[in-house]
Amino acid sequence: MVLSVERLSKAYGGVQAVRDVSFSVAAGEMVAIIGPNGAGKTTCFNMLNGQLSPDSGDIRLGGSSIAGVPPHRIWRLGVGRTFQVTATFGSMSVRENVQTALRSFYRENFSFGRAAGARYVEEADALLERVGMRDQGERACAVLAYGDLKRVELAVALANRPRLLLMDEPTAGMAPEERGALMQLVVDLARRERLAVLFTEHDMSMVFGYASRVIVLHQGEVIAEGLPEAIRNDARVREVYLGDA
């Protein structure tokens, strides 16, 4: 298992946002976490990625615990992350965004002597090529369309050659015709490079079209887990989502 989560819990004040959640993700697998708003998906993600530390439970990445470890160290262990609302460096060009991630990967954040601009240009272009953004490397991030920003974020998230990719609503805000292309890209990556992918998504056609397994959260708890087909027909899930019994 690349990622295994054991009895993870988190409360804010009196609200139990996540309760006793356990699941795992294997290499090459694409797992979706779904659930209505407020089900605890983003809280879960933020614990996996170190933005929050869990109240109890454990998160293991390839066998070692990462619960409560800060995000910048989790990244060094091989976890890439994209955010629900894209987070990129707005004053930089597309290529510079990727270069910044690459320089960090090669541990140059405290290198003073060299000029940063010329470093890892080819590698950055190769990453942009993979997400179909190579020809836009010179453009400023601040002027990109939202769908393109999502792709830049993906290229940035791949810069550390992750073994686990965490994607919080990867297609939110994208045009419908772009969504499938992005998901197909991720599926190919997962297969080809044995990458474990965990994503949340509101668009059910993306979930059932591309996930190899689905976990359903409701009020902070896992209420169902299984293959997409099984989830689609699960009575409890239908009740939560559609309100029919």
Partner: peptide, 8 residues
């Protein structure tokens, strides 16, 4: 947020 998430 992004900086932390790329190891800075």
């Amino acid at each position: 947020l992004r900086s932390e998430a790329i190891g800075i």
